[in-house]
């Protein structure tokens, strides 16, 4: 798994790290049951504060992606397929939101956008 932090991104580090770990889980780069690095280890590697990593881990845990076991470490959870579907949908939704923002800025109508998506979808097939 790679985690690339950008200093010029508008997103805080904890969001950048969280979304990259989540993507790694959804794409299968991090597999079910796999051991994640310790909080201190990841903080050292990424040169961020342990509090940032602790926040990432606790949010990912409450969202059901990872689970921590005292003394043993933090592992990738068995994720039910509905959660995976939901998360993937959410990722696509986020990208679409950006598209919609751009469309509004360039004065492109809803109908035009939907057409575009339809055409692109078919081309891709």
């Amino acid at each position: 798994m790679d985690i690339i932090l950008s200093n010029s991104s508008d997103q805080p580090f904890y969001q950048q790290i969280k979304s990259q770990i989540k993507q790694a889980i959804l794409r299968g780069t991090l597999r079910e049951g796999e051991l994640l690095p310790s909080i201190r280890n990841l903080a050292n590697e990424l040169q961020v504060s342990v509090l940032t990593i602790r926040r990432v881990y606790s949010e990912l845990e409450s969202e059901g992606f990872i689970s921590s076991h005292t003394g043993r470490g933090t592992f990738v959870s068995t994720i039910d397929s509905e959660l995976i579907r939901e998360s993937m949908r959410h990722l696509v939704e986020q990208d679409l939101q950006k598209v919609i923002q751009d469309a509004k800025a360039y004065d492109i109508s809803q109908a035009e956008i939907i057409d575009m998506i339809r055409v692109l979808f078919e081309e891709d097939l």
Binding site: P12, F13, Y14, V48, S49, L51, T52
Partner: peptide
Amino acid sequence: MDKDHLLE
């Protein structure tokens, strides 16, 4: 303050 929070 936490370092990352401070810098962000």
